[in-house]
Design a protein around this nucleic acid. Structure first.
Length: 263
DNA sequence: ATGGTCGCGCAGCGA
């Protein structure tokens, strides 16, 4: 089973790139973020033509998360339980695909340390952790993926000195990220790639992609049962190239089916 | 050169 995540930065603009990428890499499940669409505008038919069902949670204009699956999609939930879909800013969608509970999240950016936006980011992480504690089991198969807007280690940025005093690498953000790991999730990409300098996002400006100036802020966090069955993970830098790219690259993880050997 | 580029939507904000 191949599970991928991609901040597409407008599914409307990116649809051709997404269709192309689905055909190329053939993920069973694709978690998307920043679709920037209202639910009525979600491209259900084009994805259906590509063989995927789509569950979408959007508010239009900003944010918006989705799950595309070619192995079924059931028990869709929008937003953190108890808050209702409107309260989460269209940053959380969960569904069961091929027997695995998958969650697509788009963490708040935080903008700058000490701002209300930064406080809201940390608060969102607390609510995410509370949701996990209340509604998920670390012993079950679960994937929490998306744009978490945190580079968990210094190895996840091109130069840690550049980020001193900024968001994405601050102590409280990294502590919030580590709380997810402490709950029972494993950073699936790191399990396969210990090396530094592997990024999922590069600023559009100043040729940063071509200069290799990026951050690893998109993640696939999986419970141990899945981590033990994972056979590989890759960031697809090629998808950041070419015509009309997102500023994020997709990331995927391959998992053996439960039971009898590789899928 | 004290910016740089996108997407949204039609000014200027957010990332």
């Amino acid at each position: 089973m191949r599970i991928a995540t991609w901040n597409v930065n407008s599914l409307k603009v990116r649809l051709p790139r997404v269709e192309e990428w689905l055909a190329l890499r053939g993920p069973d499940v694709l978690l998307m973020q920043e679709t920037k669409l209202a639910d009525e505008a979600a491209p259900l038919l084009p994805l259906r033509m590509a063989g995927y069902d789509l569950a979408h949670h959007g508010e239009g204009r900003w944010n918006g998360v989705a799950i595309a699956s070619r192995v079924g999609i059931e028990d869709v939930s929008l937003g953190f339980d108890g808050e209702g879909p409107a309260a989460d800013g269209a940053r959380f969608i969960a569904a069961t695909c091929g027997g695995v509970r998958v969650i697509s999240v788009y963490a708040p950016n935080g903008r700058a340390l000490g701002t209300p936006f930064y406080a809201a980011k940390l608060d969102w992480y607390e609510r995410l952790a509370a949701w996990l504690s209340g509604h998920a089991d670390p012993r079950a198969d679960l994937v929490l993926g998306g744009d978490l807007n945190v580079a968990p280690e210094d190895a996840d940025v091109y130069d840690p000195r550049v980020y001193i005093g900024t968001t994405h690498t601050s102590g409280p953000e990294r502590a919030a990220f580590r709380e997810l790991l402490d709950w029972g999730l494993v950073d699936a990409y790191r399990r396969h790639h210990p090396e530094s300098g592997r990024f999922t996002w590069w600023d559009y400006r100043a040729g940063n992609f071509h200069k290799g100036l990026g951050m690893r802020i998109d993640h696939l966090l999986v419970t141990r049962s899945l981590a033990e069955r994972s056979t590989g993970a890759e960031i697809d830098r090629d998808a950041r190239k070419g015509k009309l790219p997102s500023d994020h690259a997709p990331l995927w993880l391959d998992i053996e089916r439960d039971g009898e050997g590789p899928a």
